[in-house]
Simulated assay, not measured.
Amino acid sequence: MLPTLRHFCHGRPPAPIASMGPVRRYLSWENEQRCRGQLEASTNRYRQEAAPAAVLVSLCSVAGDPAILYTLRSSTLTGVHKGSVSFPGGKRDSCDRDPIATALRETQEELGLRVEEDCVWGIMMPIPDKTKMMVMPVLANLGPLERLTLKPNPQEVEAVFTLSFRHLLQEENQGYTNFCHKGTYSHTLPVFLHGPHRVWGLTAIFTELTLELLVPGAYRRRTHVVGRR
């Protein structure tokens, strides 16, 4: 059985487009151009590197409500990421010319969705996963989810769901975890709560990067890791 697609908007049905107000501007043409401009330098830099892995941070809208699309990896997979919330993506293939190609190819393989490169806004800062492998987050806007046909690969994807920006920006849905090493504080990572599945780890960090970029000043960073300013 294929996974079902769920949209979570803090316990409420998506609001009518006419009532969106400033929230709809998160995915406006003007905000897209601003974000593309801010990502231009990092995109030019990182697409020249042979990144070992990349994911597609997938913006979308549901009934006009800006949201982010997530997948729940199949619990039958092997490896440390099985059964966890993630973005479509994976390891670089020899045929991939850059991290963007990796993210788009993996998205098509996992969700049966072909995303054109002009939908990509840019590449955000890469972060190492728990195995120390650098993962590059590629930011793209899929557009209205109602216009898309997703065909998740059941061998890789157990479920697909979205979290609205309204949900992600509410403080009661934001948490954090402090980590210690040998009794000494090491770092803090964000967690996003009260959705169909808890968003944590690398996926939460990439979500945080996205919120900081698209909604500057509206999100208080909860990540504190060495080397990140």
Rank of each mutant, 00 (worst) to 15 (best):
F87D: 09
P88K: 05
G90W: 08
D93P: 06
D93Y: 08
D93C: 03
D93W: 08
D96R: 00
D96A: 02
D96I: 08
D98E: 12
D98A: 13
D98R: 11
A101Q: 14
T102Q: 12
T102L: 15
T102H: 15
A103P: 07
L104E: 01
R105I: 06
R105W: 08
R105T: 04
E106W: 15
E106I: 02
E109N: 10
E109R: 14
E110R: 08
E110G: 10
G112A: 13
L113K: 10
R114F: 05
E116H: 08
D118C: 12
C119T: 03
V120P: 12
V120D: 04
W121L: 15
G122P: 05
G122L: 06
M125S: 13
P126K: 04
P126I: 00
D129L: 14
M136F: 14
P137G: 13
P137D: 15
P137M: 11
V138D: 11
L139M: 02
L139R: 13
L139D: 15
A140W: 03
A140V: 02
A140T: 02
A140G: 05
P144Y: 03
L145I: 15
L148Q: 13
T149A: 04
L150N: 11
K151F: 00
P152W: 10
P154K: 09
P154I: 03
Q155W: 03
E156R: 15
E156G: 08
V157L: 15
V157H: 13
E158F: 09
V160M: 10
T162I: 02
T162L: 11
L163K: 06
L169K: 02
L169H: 12
L169F: 01
Q170D: 11
E171Y: 00
E172W: 09
Q174D: 08
Y176G: 07
Y176N: 04
N178H: 11
N178P: 13
N178V: 02
N178D: 15
F179A: 13
H181G: 13
G183D: 13
G183M: 13
G183F: 13
Y185A: 07
Y185L: 07
